[in-house]
Design a binder for these strands. Structure first.
Lengths: 359, 359
DNA sequence: AAGCTAATCCGAAACGTTTCGGATGGTCAA
DNA sequence: TTGACCATCCGAAACGTTTCGGATTAGCTT
């Protein structure tokens, strides 16, 4: 099970065996054949730990999952891990996963990863706009790639253009005739929360519309439900609700139901994530598909390039999310109109959009 | 950054420094103080890789996520990982996560983990009743713990008693007066699929009721939707649908909606998982809460005990799942009765159950 | 004064790999 | 014949830790 075993049983030196298996040119072909044969016979597998010690690497990449109230059950991380798993394996890298709640506990975990040399690189998700984890990693000179941009920038990052998606979504709602478009957002210190809100804000400014009411909270169903209730009970009830995530939107849909409002007719709702449930909500949810697998692939490209010695500072990619129109949004209700006529115009609009999006 | 650095700068040997930091008794207190002081001064952190090589361990536990059509987005794995993360960290163990689709690719990954000595133990999830991964791990003499029982048994395992939960659920539906109770299950080669179906089957036999119609598929919303459609369109339409998972149930609820049937009134639906969406479905879904965190904790207990030298064969735990009654189930519709009266009796039953469950 | 014990410390080996800098022997050209 | 060159192989060091088996000293007993 070790090089020396092969060496002694073949009367060779450990060096030669190592170089034979390593494909070096200064070993005779016949010798290499013998070595490979013996290696297969005894089922030799190189000891990863020894190799790492000698190489001064750890051949591992770390990621820390956020654990917090209502932060679990995010399919995002699972899809991310599943997407990069095979490629990491191919590159001979392990993926080390741990979990911590945001804050000091989280940063301590990053320190542990880095200082114990347990990873060669890190993947940072659920990025904050000003993120001490990133300041730390940069200071420690450990390669990393973030999912989400930061205010400081200057590091490898892949992001989905939430500003564009939410600007588009807002424009879509404006096109439907909505004038009071509320926003249920994630906390603005989260990178994705910030940029999505910015898109909504920009589109309203461009359309010359006043800002609808807003609420922010950790993105889960319960908060979506609660915040939508608040917005719907407010003085100027919005006719459309833009939600930073599907989970918020699912909660919002529920709040509409409580208030006897029909999603897509009385109040439009648009989410983001295109999560499995969005298609099976009471009213199928119009959402944006972020192509997580694609983003994960690019993140890994950047990580591997950095491990190969490239500088990460210039690596950035901003990707688009694609609209998935379903039935939770539509034309603004006409106070004097009939549901029937609205239904028809809604369907037409929706088909238009569908056409527009596949083109 | 290494023991030798501390040793030379203090005029000690590497051995003494190691033993000082290791808490051994054959080093003078004053020396220990000096060593600890110097270690802190230069920020010494032991090199995990070197320690592992010397110890012949890898200080890591592996888990392979199933990647398959519609298998993603399972919050189960995320909750599992999040639950064991901190405890693993405390024990100085890394969690190495990879992903593969079931079958030969998956087994190859297990082999890689074991043969390259990248892990000291494995966690097996999404266990099958006859599971070649388990046969392999046993043969390789690597400690492991499964989530889910196998036919062979004789290994450390934690399972939620799906048979009991589904027997209870069926009894609940029988108590509501249902006679035709359909079952939408997961494939029976999955451990959880097998035991849940068995519970349903047993309860029907006990009640002397004929088996309702059944369908099986990978547990996702789409399949739940499709299979529920099939069952509802069949010759003997069931008045209740028991679903092996919430995702199946969510799809089934949708199918009811398509057919103009009201969940909880016209057709009862019960799921399993108590996933976040179950509370925010169109009709909040009656479900079973499996206490994943509790199970994960016990799995880790077993894993650590095995790493400490204990034999895993006798370690088994069967845990209960608790009913979370919501609005998707209720009394069987009386063909001649009024919705109103049914509503009242439904509420009463539901409160009874709620009382019963918290007691 | 000799032997014993306890308290401290340390050298060297070991874990399994990679790699630097030769070493050996043979062939070929000058 | 001698030097150059090539093909092939190998010894030893290094990565950083733990641990076995002493070694040294001082104090104490008899």
């Amino acid at each position: 099970m070790s090089l020396s075993q092969i060496a002694t049983s073949l009367g060779l030196s450990v060096t030669t065996v190592s170089r034979a298996l390593g494909g070096y040119s200064d070993v005779a072909e016949t010798t290499r054949k013998r070595v490979i044969g013996e290696a297969e016979r005894i089922g030799y597998r190189p000891n990863a730990v020894a190799r790492r010690l000698r190489g001064g690497r750890s051949d591992a990449v770390g990621i820390v999952l956020p654990t917090g109230p209502g932060q679990l059950g995010e399919p995002f991380f699972l899809r991310l891990i599943a997407a990069i798993g095979p490629r990491l394996a191919e590159a001979g890298l392990d993926l080390i996963v741990s979990s911590a709640r945001s804050g000091s506990e989280e940063l301590a975990l990053y320190r542990q990863f880095v200082e114990n040399r347990r990873v060669d690189a890190m993947i940072v998700a659920r990025t904050r706009l000003d993120d001490d984890r990133i300041a730390y990693l940069r200071h420690a000179r450990l390669p990393f790639v973030t999912h989400g941009r930061t205010r400081a920038g200057g590091h490898a990052s892949v992001d989905i253009d939430g500003t564009r998606a939410f600007r588009e979504a807002t424009q879509r709602l404006v096109g439907f005739g909505h004038c009071r478009i509320g926003f249920i957002g994630a906390p603005l210190d989260y990178s994705f929360g910030f940029f999505r809100e910015a898109g909504w804000r920009a589109a309203l400014a461009e359309a010359g519309l006043p800002h609808g009411p807003t609420r922010f909270a950790e993105p889960n169903e319960e908060n979506g439900h609660r915040l939508a209730h608040e917005l719907l009970a407010g003085p100027e009830r919005p006719t459309a609700l833009l939600c930073a995530t599907d989970r918020l939107a699912i909660g919002a849909l529920h709040a509409l139901g409580d208030a006897g409002l029909r999603p897509g007719y009385d109040v439009s709702v648009i989410g983001y994530d295109n999560s499995p449930v969005s298609n099976y909500a009471a009213t199928p949810l119009t959402s944006y598909d972020p192509d997580i697998e694609g983003a994960a692939g690019r993140m890994l490209d950047m990580l591997l390039a950095q491990l190969a010695g490239q500088e990460g500072a210039g690596m950035n990619e901003l990707r688009g999310a694609t609209l998935v129109p379903r039935r939770s949004d539509g034309p603004v209700p006409n106070p004097s109109g009939q549901t029937k006529s609205r239904t028809i115009s809604r369907e037409e609009k929706s088909d238009d959009e569908r056409l527009h999006d596949t083109a």
